[in-house]
Computed example of a mutant assay.
Amino acid sequence: MARYYAKGGSEVEVSWGAIPYTLIVTAPTAIVYSVITNSWRPIIRPALWGVYLGVVATVIPYRLFAMGVSRIRASTASVIATVEPVLAAIWGFLLFRQVPTALTLVAYALIIVASIIVSFEESQ
C-alpha cells in the first residue's frame, strides 16, 4: 500500500494514514476514563505524549519510508522493511540495555538469513 501511494507522489496520505486509526482506538478509552473519574486532568499529559509519539513515531517515519519506497524497487524495500525489527533490537540494546532472549535472537538470525537469501535471488 505504501508503494502504491508513494508511486503517485502522495507520501502524505501514507504518513497520515495511521493517525485516524490511533484516534479511533484511543479517544473512546480516554473519554470513558474521564467520565468514570469525573476529571479530564489525568488524561491531558498522556494525550499530549500520544500526539507527540503519533507525529514522531508514525507520521515522520511513514513519510520517510514512502519517499524511499518510491525511489527503489519493491523487493529491495521489502528486504529493508523486514530487517527493521532487527535494527530496532540493536538500537534497544545499545541505547536502553534491553537484552533479547535466546528465542528472539534465533528469530533475528532467521530474519537476517532470509534477507540475505532474497537479496542473492534478486541479483541473479
Rank of each mutant, 00 (worst) to 15 (best):
V12I: 14
E13C: 04
S15I: 05
W16K: 02
G17R: 00
G17S: 10
G17P: 00
A18W: 08
A18Y: 07
I19R: 00
P20H: 07
Y21R: 01
T22C: 13
L23Q: 03
L23H: 09
I24G: 06
V25N: 06
V25T: 13
V25E: 10
P28Y: 08
T29Q: 02
T29S: 05
T29D: 02
T29V: 14
I31L: 12
I31N: 01
I31R: 00
V32I: 15
Y33D: 06
S34M: 06
V35W: 06
V35S: 03
I36F: 09
T37S: 10
T37Q: 10
N38T: 12
N38P: 01
S39N: 10
S39K: 02
S39W: 05
W40C: 03
R41G: 14
R41C: 12
R41P: 04
P42E: 05
P42H: 04
I43G: 05
I43R: 02
I44C: 08
R45P: 02
A47R: 00
W49S: 09
G50K: 03
L53Q: 05
L53D: 07
L53R: 03
V55E: 01
T58G: 13
T58N: 11
T58D: 05
V59C: 11
I60T: 10
Y62K: 02
R63K: 12
R63N: 15
R63M: 15
R63T: 13
F65Q: 12
F65S: 13
G68K: 00
G68F: 12
G68P: 02
V69T: 07
S70K: 07
S70V: 08
R71P: 07
R71Q: 14
R71T: 11
I72G: 08
I72Y: 03
R73H: 13
S75C: 08
S75L: 09
T76C: 07
T76N: 12
A77T: 03
S78E: 08
S78Q: 02
V79R: 03
I80H: 01
I80A: 14
I80N: 00
I80K: 01
A81C: 07
E84T: 12
E84P: 01
V86G: 03
V86F: 05
L87V: 09
A88Q: 05
A88W: 08
A89L: 07
W91E: 06
W91C: 08
